[in-house]
């Protein structure tokens, strides 16, 4: 068993959901990991050059991260996810991610495949991935369980901290968007940092109680979490900020269909490669003025 390999983890897309799980899992197996740096315009440009024009903004960033890692590690971790639960679907970008990277770069890929509809759960996928690295089933399962425990712990802490923030006196906004959109450095700088600068508390729609995940709509794995949060937090915040990227069908539907029904100050920010940071900042500052005044409009 060769434990001296290094696995590169692109700091993009699923990283923001699974980073605790991945890092703890590989640490428990004694494998070194290297994470690509925070996104910047160089990473984005490299992604843009290596994918089709029409690919969405986060996918271009992801490809840029893989480009950064390709000569710096033995394997790049590129999971493939088709469905996380039996009756749900996920954006097809995650279906195609592995083959897309494989056909774009000459790089060794460490891959696992989750397709709950076909009985391939996350646990099975991790066992297979671990076996490919030369570990025994028991060692892998032990590492996986410890990693899951760590992931649960961190999610619970995040949730409890968020719940606590709901009861302070500060002005609050509900930030809606996929994790990889709102936490990526390029968008974070443009959006989250402005709210932080003006002492606005951010309630994240993606942070959920790991013990309880109510379902109201089928088939929309990541959107579901956001929808539940809108329902839960809409009356406890002063305004709602929707962050979406171009072009994303799921974002479109969420924005158009659900938020029309919420009588709350709302701002929608569409991120694409042509964004002017100053424009977005100005838009957010106007919105902050509005929510602090307490006007109500639809």
């Amino acid at each position: 068993m060769d434990n001296k390999i290094t696995i590169g983890i692109p700091r993009s897309l699923l990283y923001y959901k699974y980073n605790i799980l991945w890092l703890k899992f590989f640490k428990e197996l004694g494998i070194e990991t290297i994470i690509s740096p925070e996104s910047d315009y160089e990473i984005f440009e490299n992604g843009k050059k290596n994918t089709v024009n029409e690919a969405c903004f986060p996918l271009k960033i992801y490809i840029g991260h893989v480009y950064y890692l390709k000569d710096k590690c033995d394997y790049v971790l590129v999971p493939r996810i088709a469905s996380l639960e039996n009756d749900t679907n996920i954006c097809t970008v995650f279906n195609a991610l592995y083959d897309l990277v494989r056909n774009t770069f000459e790089v060794n890929i460490l891959n696992y495949n989750i397709d709950a509809k076909k009985g391939l759960t996350e646990e099975i996928a991790f066992v297979k991935m671990g076996q490919e690295l030369g570990f025994g089933k028991e060692v892998i399962l032990s590492a996986y369980k410890l990693a899951k425990k760590e992931e649960y712990k961190q999610n619970k802490i995040n949730y409890l901290l968020q719940e606590k923030r709901l009861y302070n006196e500060k002005t609050k906004i509900l930030l809606i968007g996929y994790l990889y959109n709102i936490f990526d450095n390029l968008t974070k700088k443009m959006i989250m940092d402005v709210f932080i600068e003006y002492d606005i508390d951010i309630i994240y729609a993606n942070i959920k109680n790991p013990d309880k995940d109510k379902k109201t709509l089928k088939n929309l794995t990541y959107n579901q979490q956001i929808l539940n949060s809108i329902e839960k937090y809409k009356d406890k915040v002063n305004g709602i900020v929707i962050v979406s990227t171009f072009p994303c069908v799921s974002n479109t539907l969420i924005n158009k269909m659900f938020l029309r029904k919420i009588n709350k100050k709302t701002i929608s920010i569409l991120i694409n490669e042509l964004n002017d940071e100053e424009d977005i900042r100005e838009k957010i500052l106007n919105f902050i003025d509005d929510i602090k005044k307490g006007d109500t409009y639809e």
Partner: peptide
Amino acid sequence: SFGCTPEIGGMKILEK
């Protein structure tokens, strides 16, 4: 169709 995510995923592969 413009913005069709599955087809966008396959375009690079078809191109190759």
